[in-house]
């Protein structure tokens, strides 16, 4: 197994073995992180990681930064919002960062495909930290790593995803990857919150939570975003809660050893009840170390490939 990509743009174009390879590498990184005595490998010594986020603050930015620092890299930040407002193009911002010597560019951008676009113009390796409604592949790898920790294998696992798949890019990455890894994926949501033609990817579609979660091994609930967005898609948050909230009763149809996940931030009592969040099936808020490990593995693997060149 190996990983020979220059950029990390999405999961849908990776193979099953590439995805597994990243997760395996992350397991090693996690081992190092958790054994306090082991000295950390400075794989990125002398390298520079630039983050390019169009949102003020974000938890994944923190985790990308910590991962880079753990590996000995320098980290610089650019908050792109101001630049876009001035009319500067992503291509020019990216080239600038490239020219000042970044080896990795971590980008989060509201337009789908923006990391793919940027990758055409820079020497640095691009890491997609979320693009529009497309994918958030590293966040998905964290979920996958957590599932692997708990269930060992993905083969024939039943994974149920509840909620707003349409607007959620982590869910999309999860769907692409889980299918590749051999899991059985079921989506349950009002039809207006599912991406068009998602059934063609081979997932099962449900409208009843109780029916969908029967014999589930893994349940992922998704955040309901800014409520205004839903005005035209669902009648009300109240109705959504009634039909789609994961509560203890609905959870009881799943397997006994089911695990419940949520990418956060959570709206308690809307997509998931507090009882479930704090219950024993829940892995919510318990997977954070995986986030740093996954990002360390990504830097390391892209770096092996070359990780861009230093422009002197």
């Amino acid at each position: 197994m190996s990983f020979n990509k220059k950029h990390f743009l999405d999961l849908k174009t990776l193979t099953e073995s590439e995805i597994s390879y990243i997760i395996d590498s992350a397991q090693k990184m996690k081992y190092i992180l958790l054994s306090k005595n082991a000295s950390q490998p400075l794989y990125l010594k002398g390298k520079t990681v630039a983050t390019l986020f169009d949102e003020e603050s974000s938890r994944s930015k923190l985790s990308y930064e910590l991962a880079a620092l753990n590996l000995g890299a320098k980290v610089i930040h650019l908050h792109t919002d101001k630049h876009f407002k001035k009319g500067e193009s992503l291509k020019d911002i990216g080239r600038y960062i490239d020219q000042i010597g970044a080896d990795f560019i971590v980008i989060r951008h509201e337009v789908s495909g923006s990391p793919h676009h940027l990758s055409k113009y820079v020497g640095a390796s691009i890491l997609n930290a979320g693009d529009g409604m497309n994918e958030n592949p590293s966040q998905s790898l964290i979920d996958l790593m957590t599932i692997q920790d708990q269930k060992k294998s993905f083969k024939d696992l039943k994974v149920v995803i509840i909620g707003d798949v349409m607007h959620n890019r982590v869910a999309k990455s999860n769907i692409w990857a889980l299918k590749k890894l051999g899991a059985h994926v079921a989506l349950v949501a009002p039809p207006t919150l599912l991406p068009y033609g998602i059934a063609s990817t081979g997932v099962e579609i449900h409208t009843s939570v109780a029916e969908a979660v029967i014999d589930a091994d893994v349940i992922m609930t998704l955040r309901m975003n800014d409520k205004n967005e839903y005005n035209r898609l669902i009648p009300s948050i109240n109705e959504y809660k009634k039909l789609y909230k994961l509560d203890v009763q609905r959870l009881s149809y799943a397997k006994d050893d089911v695990i419940v996940m949520h990418p956060g931030p959570i709206n308690r009592g809307i997509e998931i009840s507090s009882e479930v969040i704090d219950g024993e099936s829940s892995l919510i808020s318990k997977q954070q170390v995986n986030g740093v490990a996954i990002r360390m593995a990504l830097y390391h693997l892209l770096n092996k490939k070359g990780g861009g060149q230093l422009i002197v």
């Binding site: 789908s112 495909g113 529009g132 497309n134 994918e135 033609g197």
Partner: peptide
């Protein structure tokens, strides 16, 4: 609107 738009996330 179709599999391609879903694939590209647009």
């Amino acid at each position: 609107e179709g599999p391609i738009s879903t694939y590209l996330g647009i």
